[in-house]
Design a protein around this nucleic acid. Sequence first.
DNA 1: TTGTATGCGTTATCAG
DNA 2: CTGATAACGCATACAA
Lengths: 329, 329
Amino acid sequence: MVSIKDVAKEAGVAISTVSKVLNNYPNVSEETRKKVGDVVERLGFVPNAVAASLSSKKTGRVALLIKLNLRTQASDEISMQYISGAVHRAKELQLDVITVFTSMIEDMSAPEVISYFESQGIRGIIVYGLTTRDKVVHKLIDSGNFKMVVIDAPMVNESTSSVSIDHRQAQKDVALKTITENGCKKVLYISGEESGYVTSERLEGIKELCREKRLRLITRNGDFSELKAREITTKYAKKYDCVVCASDLMAIGAMKALIEMDIFRPVCGFDGIILMGYVGKQMNTVKQDFVKISEEALDELWRLMQGEKGRKVTVPYSLERLKYEDIIC
Amino acid sequence: MVSIKDVAKEAGVAISTVSKVLNNYPNVSEETRKKVGDVVERLGFVPNAVAASLSSKKTGRVALLIKLNLRTQASDEISMQYISGAVHRAKELQLDVITVFTSMIEDMSAPEVISYFESQGIRGIIVYGLTTRDKVVHKLIDSGNFKMVVIDAPMVNESTSSVSIDHRQAQKDVALKTITENGCKKVLYISGEESGYVTSERLEGIKELCREKRLRLITRNGDFSELKAREITTKYAKKYDCVVCASDLMAIGAMKALIEMDIFRPVCGFDGIILMGYVGKQMNTVKQDFVKISEEALDELWRLMQGEKGRKVTVPYSLERLKYEDIIC
DNA sequence: TTGTATGCGTTATCAG
DNA sequence: CTGATAACGCATACAA
């Protein structure tokens, strides 16, 4: 394994000089910079990330904290895109990432989790799918031990940023489109899990819309569950002329119920997962670019690690109508 | 951050002694072992994995090399289960894992990839979804620089193990079941991508079965593509009384074609992905436990890192019939 | 502009 | 059985 020492010897300079070249320090002559660069190239030297991270404390590692639900692959699709976006961006930023599932830390106390991450050399954490019930993660955020970026939750402080789309507006948009297209007056809204931060945002959106457009609205908690959405739809859909769901999976459940009941009601979902293309019927949905969101999160974490302050970052979304033809290949 | 030094001072012993206790070295008295253990407990000390790996070179890191296809979320589901199984098992084994997508290394030469992994302190690599065309990965395997475990490909040498189900037998089993249940005589087999190692295994299986049972067989290459399977089915299904597919996604494509043609043919798939539950019709399929496979792979990598030799590991599978009711929640 | 020396948190090798 | 002390590969304050 070729080390910085080998490069230094080969180039006839000191180790520190090589280090300076590697890290683009200012006070190095063009001449030695080139000399060292050539040797690095020739020897195919790549700095040892482990040693670098031990030494500097600046170029730290990043953890992706992901909530897993192996029963529904809708979340698999989303998680994969999150991971993909993060890992790719991390490589560009020369950051080292590890993937951690919440199930791995759920039986630890906050101090235990903190020392676990510290022992791993973690300096930044991206949290995907935080709910109000995740006490330990909240303590992590409050501890200030790590730079953190939280997806889809309004946590912002000195060392914590939030990244998400505008859920309230998106819910308004997709519902409005569906309602206008079908001339609806009475909306059945199936909301997500109460502890989820996005749930209340989206709920606000639909309420606001119905107030503005003077539509009748009933809301029921579907818990992001396909089955519950199906039951709710079975129970209420007859009396309403449109079903707005806070997730695609619930929209699929609602659609199944409508087919069973043999009545038509426009349904719209939220997230834009590929699964939507497989259920036969088309629906409007909010398309989130999870890859982009994750890249954005990593950029934000990078900013925080440079010493900048936490802030709220909003990512764009789009409205889509997924057809089977769009997804097969 | 509490370090080994703090523990040593607090316990009134030398750093090296603490290290010995931590790593269960033999020559330590029960007394000091307990004394140190207590302090470790009290201070909540967790050894810094980065420093340990720098120093020892024994407790290495592991990379998961994953092939991503963002267009089909069938592979997302599988990849997520792979990652989940590996990450969880890794934590138990106190191994550190990083996730790498093939797209991140596809434009690098073999030496570059090797130094990249070495720079990351990687000592073991698990390869998911290897094809014959992945030249660089083959060079990685041949280089002997890393302990490797390859899923679903028959690569075995001194430092490389393979982990997979018995694809040949599984293909036979699922096809036999489907054929017997429906009394079929003429089989249309839609195979996977030619460069995939599993493709030929599964193909052998169906050929063997048809030979044994004296069934007529035609095989066509569907490239693991839903669309191609659909086209092939449209073209040939009329003349055959059963469609055996080398993947669930292709089975879905075949089913769609049959529905369009308005004829019935039993279809069977391979993999057991949840998506199968959403297409309306039930099909037989081979259920692979991807989480288990990945855990097994990690155990195997662990063995290799202990200096044991590469070998072939076979994991069990089961036959299933996925219904919508089985997957909703 | 360059080189020297020290430290990061562990492990490992020796003396004692 | 225990304790100094030298690595591990790199970054960096400081000296030259």
